[in-house]
Design a protein around this nucleic acid. Structure first.
Length: 410
RNA sequence: GGAGGGAUACCGAAGCGGUUAAACGGGGCAGACUGUAAAUCUGCUGGCCUUUGGCCUACGGAGGUUCGAAUCCUCCUCCCUCCA
């Protein structure tokens, strides 16, 4: 490659890297390093770390995972770091209370399925998968104290999440201070050239730069990305807030959840999740925000694209048909779970009992409430008497708009 | 080590001797409406029952005072702030 060609290539790659990102720290340093790498035909080492603090990855995680995939496509080395050690500390980032510390067994349990979930979005055989326990479990207390001597308490307290907690008298534990050191040290151990993360990770990511300098390495570049807003359209997507779409969600469920986001969240979802794909949908979404276009059709398309990426095109099409049928036309879905109940010599089972037994209500009181509020129908007929008897036979029960069960009493 | 403040349902937060399964807000569920599981409005939101009523469990934990306690007292646990 000529110098001019290299220069163009560097420019092209940086543009891809920047896509969808909020901040790009150390961009100029990276440009220089990339130039050398291209000359020597050597890939950049690109780190993305996630803590197995819950067993499920969601669409919010997919934003940075897709970015990692872009780096792979550019010919660099993606490193997926499973924070098995850091999960045992609990990342305080963006939290208004202490994250519960997990024990080693829970972490191992979560980590098991992590890589499989990542594999849904990118080719893991080309990814360097590492665990930070590899080096952290080897570290001596002396090493660790040396590590911690790289930043001050005042600096820590400047962090938004900490200063807010401090001001509102919510406890901050010492170990929470330790988290950024470990995450930063991971970059040292991995000799990362670039680290990806959400904007909430900014402090931790920049700590990596500082520690690399302290340990005599050139500092990594840092790319921060916006946090995907959850199903409610306001809070960031998070499993604990219950507004998330899991990577492992079934196609139908995933499709329905996408359909439920507020229209106003569509352009943002497209921007973050498409990551350069589906460009014309983006154009039409832009028009829509100018007041044109059919929002429902656009949302169907968005849902279809998302499901197709995580699952496959066939599953997405099926999920779409199912949604139109069950939710929009209020027809009975194809597959209704079937429950068989024993009559046990009685004349009939009470409706409330049936609802609880079929898992459609968590208690008889709740079942009674549902019936009284007109939320229950049997064989498509609305029920009003919670004590109505259910004779032997097979009947279709519906609770609310879309929960069904076929109950066979025998 | 000392002084003060606090712990209430899924979450936040009132209540400070009886009419409190406990205001209010959020969340959740149901209903109406809708292109959508959005927005908006309405209702419900501890459990069990023979249900215009009854019973059980519940206000950090353990005891106590009282006819009666989330509310008063004692001890304990945990948290926060300030001083050292």
């Amino acid at each position: 490659m000529t110098d001019a060609a290299i220069k163009d290539e560097v420019r092209r790659q940086l543009a891809v890297m920047r896509e969808g990102a909020v901040d790009f720290y150390g961009e100029n340093e990276l440009a220089a390093r990339l130039t050398v790498c291209l000359k020597e035909d050597r890939p950049l080492r690109v780190k993305l770390g996630m803590d197995p603090s819950s067993s499920d990855l969601h669409l919010g995680h997919s934003v940075v995972l897709m970015k990692l995939r872009r780096f792979l496509e550019l010919g660099h080395t993606p490193i997926f770091l499973v924070g098995d050690f850091t999960a045992r500390i609990g990342d305080p980032s963006g939290r208004n209370k202490t994250r519960p510390a997990l024990d080693a067994d829970q972490v191992k349990e979560h980590a098991k399925t992590y890589v499989d979930q990542v594999a849904k979005l990118l080719d893991v055989s080309a990814v360097e998968v590492r665990f930070n326990g590899e080096w952290m479990d080897q570290m001596t207390p002396g090493d660790f104290v040396r590590l911690c001597s790289q930043a001050t308490v005042a600096r820590m307290l400047e962090r938004d999440d900490f200063s807010k907690r401090y001001a509102s008298e919510v406890p901050i534990f010492i170990h929470e201070f330790l988290y950024p050191f470990v995450q930063g040290y991971d970059s040292v151990a991995l000799e990362a050239d670039v680290e990806l993360g959400g904007t909430d990770q900014t402090f931790n990511l920049l700590m990596g730069r500082e520690l690399q300098r302290a340990y005599g390495q050139p500092p990594q570049a840092v790319l921060t990305h916006p946090l995907l807003v959850g199903l409610d359209g306001h809070e960031k997507m998070s499993k604990s807030l219950g507004n998330s779409i899991g990577i492992t969600d079934k196609p139908g469920e995933m499709y329905g959840k996408v359909m439920s986001i507020p229209d106003t969240a569509m352009p943002e979802w497209h921007r973050l999740l498409a990551m350069g794909d589906w460009p014309e949908l983006g154009d039409r979404l832009a028009q829509f925000s100018d007041g044109d276009g059919d929002p429902m059709a656009l949302k169907h398309e968005l849902a279809n694209n998302i499901v197709a990426r995580v699952h496959d095109a066939t599953a997405a099409t099926e999920a779409g048909e199912q949604f139109r049928r069950v939710v929009q036309r209020k027809e009975v879905p194809d597959h209704v779970p079937e429950v068989t109940l024993a009559l046990a010599g009685r004349v009939g089972l009470k409706l409330v009992e049936v609802l609880v037994e079929a898992g459609l209500a968590s208690s008889k009181s709740e079942a009674r409430r549902l019936v009284q509020q007109g939320g229950v129908s049997v064989d498509r007929e609305k029920q009003s008497d919670p004590t109505a008897l259910f004779p032997a036979g097979s009947q279709l029960i519906q609770v609310g708009k879309r929960r069904y069960a076929k109950v066979v009493v025998e």
